[in-house]
């Protein structure tokens, strides 16, 4: 058998399902990992931002007591202005024990939703403020609520964007792993297929009694299972040939 003839023989069917299986398996892993990752990262980041906002509200509440009792609202405004520069914190307002908004960071004015809201609320509340966006607001009582309540609004759109970025990065990483995995699997399959193709070519040569194939040192020299099978087949073919030569009348009865 000539070299071009050998190249023409390809094992196409044997590993087709294997490749498909690998792709499906990796796809399933990516999907499951991504879904889990998105849920985990999303909830963890959301919790983290809420926790940060709650901490900021508590810090302001703790440091506001004297200022509030001294009725020094300018200093209080100066204090909250510094915190509102922190990323994702979009507004802060402080209500008195009677519910009056004493200081805030809203421009051009305090939204109606805020005015009508519970001035003493401390549990996280999701708010949609017209013209401003969606927010999660957390509150912290000042002097156990006797001096008022600090409210910190966290920009949900910004948090969502950050979550999208974080999960997007994870998905991108997983996709890269998928592609590398699939390509690697194909390469490993190819490693397994190549000697099988050589064996197949050899066997075809044997069947044709091709002299070149009989003496194909490359496949016969292999020290793996392929080499053993090639040698076994050669042995079988040679036995058949020598048997036929020593008993020429057989089969003619």
């Amino acid at each position: 058998m000539t070299q071009p003839d050998q190249q023409a023989i390809r094992i196409k069917k044997l590993f087709r399902k294997t490749r498909f299986g690998i792709f499906v398996l990796f796809g399933a892993i990516v999907f499951a990992t991504s879904t889990l990752s998105i849920r985990t990262v999303s909830s963890q980041l959301q919790e983290e931002y809420e926790s940060n906002s709650a901490n900021i509200a508590k810090n302001i509440a703790d440091s506001s007591v004297d200022i509030l009792l001294n009725r020094n609202l300018a200093t209080l405004q100066s204090l909250i202005d510094q915190f509102v520069e922190i990323q994702s914190i979009r507004y802060i307002y402080i209500t008195s024990d009677t519910g009056e908004i004493l200081t805030h960071t809203f421009v051009p004015g305090v939204p109606e939703v805020i005015r009508e809201g519970d001035p003493h609320a401390t549990e996280p509340i999701e708010r949609s403020l017209p013209g401003m966006g969606d927010f999660v607001e957390v509150g912290s009582p000042i002097l156990a609520g006797q001096a008022g309540t600090v409210h910190v609004g966290m920009d949900l759109d910004l948090v969502r964007l950050k979550i999208q970025r974080a999960t997007g990065q994870q998905i991108a990483l997983i996709c890269i792993i998928l592609i590398v995995g699939v390509l690697g699997s194909i390469w490993f399959v190819k490693l397994a297929v190549t000697p099988l193709e050589e064996l197949l070519s050899y066997v075809v040569g044997l069947a044709r009694r091709d002299a070149d194939s009989l003496n194909d040192a490359k496949v016969l020299a292999r020290d793996d299972e392929i080499g053993e099978m090639a040698r076994l087949m050669l042995h079988a073919v040679k036995g058949e040939v020598s048997g036929a030569a020593s008993n020429p009348g057989s089969g003619t009865d």
Partner: peptide, 11 residues
């Protein structure tokens, strides 16, 4: 003005 100055006048 949404800052300490504005709040001072507001107060």
């Amino acid at each position: 003005q949404a800052d300490a100055y504005g709040r001072s006048g507001w107060a």
